[in-house]
């Protein structure tokens, strides 16, 4: 297992390198110009050139990239083009926000998805199954930003149960933290819970028809023990693979949902950086997101190995 972790972490290095090259190249190809935004509409060409030189924009892209890379390998992702805010600081400040959102969403997705999937699998073709299937279809079909707007309108604006915007840090107030993440997490996690429910139902229906389940029942094991220990454990193997993908989807979706709830996470930072073409900030965000995805996949592989001994690396 340790070898697997080391291998994956080593593989992260070339991956981050390739991603950084691509991000740097694509961002530089954009026709908009951050210097324009900095100097404003009334700047002279001379001012424009001064700022361009200060940002190093008049150097060839390769030189700029190598300079950035030289600092990045020392842990310095640079500073924003627009102010003295360090990229590392900005990303690290927002990371807990997006992770909070993603974690609570994933929790909601797992709890709701597994419960709905199991309920449907235990009574196939019953009204529970049909209701769960319909719910899953609905959950996957609705855009999360639209669902977020509906949740805000009902539970924040009308009922005043939750704040309409903003995020409270867990360290500041656990209760306010929960209130601030619950609506965006429901908006974000609904689609994933639907996908997980479908997967759990499908896997569970298959597992429940296996001989070893019949054998377990014949041995006189309780229905609960058969279901949890034998059926669910085995049914979760394919679900974990889906979950890995869904967490990646949640990370991406958080970028959109953050806008609806005015949550100051990585998504808000990313959108602002792209609009301004703040290349150092975009680079930092993309690298962190890629690293997060790799870590999620690694965690998935570990869980996968724990659930399925056959999948463990020799």
């Amino acid at each position: 297992m340790i070898r697997l972790i080391v291998q994956r972490l080593l593989a992260l290095v070339p991956l981050l390198f390739i991603v950084s090259v691509l991000t740097f190249s694509f961002t530089s190809l954009l026709p908009s110009d951050p210097v324009d935004l900095i100097v404003g509409d009334t700047a002279t060409q001379e001012q424009y050139e001064i700022v361009r030189e200060r940002l190093g924009m008049n150097q060839p892209i390769v030189v700029r990239y190598v300079q950035w890379l030289g600092r990045a390998v020392q842990g310095d992702l640079g500073t924003s083009f627009f102010n003295s805010v360090s990229v590392t600081g900005a990303v690290m400040q927002r990371l807990p926000v997006t992770l909070s959102l993603t974690a609570v969403s994933a929790l909601i997705a797992i709890v709701v998805g597994v419960a709905a999937g199991m309920a449907a699998a235990l009574r196939p073709r019953s009204w529970i199954d049909r209701f769960a299937t319909l719910g899953a279809t609905f959950g996957q079909a609705i855009p999360n930003f639209w669902f977020g707007l509906i949740l805000v309108a009902v539970f924040a604006v009308n009922l005043r149960w939750f704040p309409a915007t903003g995020f409270t840090a867990l360290s500041a107030s656990p209760w306010d933290w929960l209130r601030s993440v619950i609506l965006p997490s429901i908006a974000l996690g609904t689609s994933s819970s639907a996908a997980i429910a479908r997967q759990v139902r499908s896997a569970m229906v298959g597992v429940l028809q296996q001989d070893y389940i019949r054998a377990a029942r014949a041995q006189g094991l309780s229905a609960r023990r058969v279901l949890i220990k034998h059926a669910l454990t085995n049914a979760m193997v394919p679900v974990v693979a889906v979950l890995s993908f869904q967490i990646t989807v949640l990370l991406g979706g958080a970028l959109v949902v953050e806008q609806v709830f005015a949550i100051n996470g990585l998504g808000t930072l990313a959108i602002g950086a792209v609009r301004q073409q703040d290349i150092p900030m975009i680079q930092g965000i993309v690298l962190v997101m890629v690293a997060l995805v790799v870590v999620v996949q690694l965690a998935t592989d570990i869980v996968y190995g724990l659930l399925n001994p056959k999948a463990r690396p020799s």
Partner: peptide
């Protein structure tokens, strides 16, 4: 408050934030 999204700003106003 930095609230560039018009709908989020409107919701914040409606809820007294």
């Amino acid at each position: 408050w930095e609230l560039p999204d018009d709908t989020a700003r409107l919701n914040a106003l409606k809820t007294g934030q």
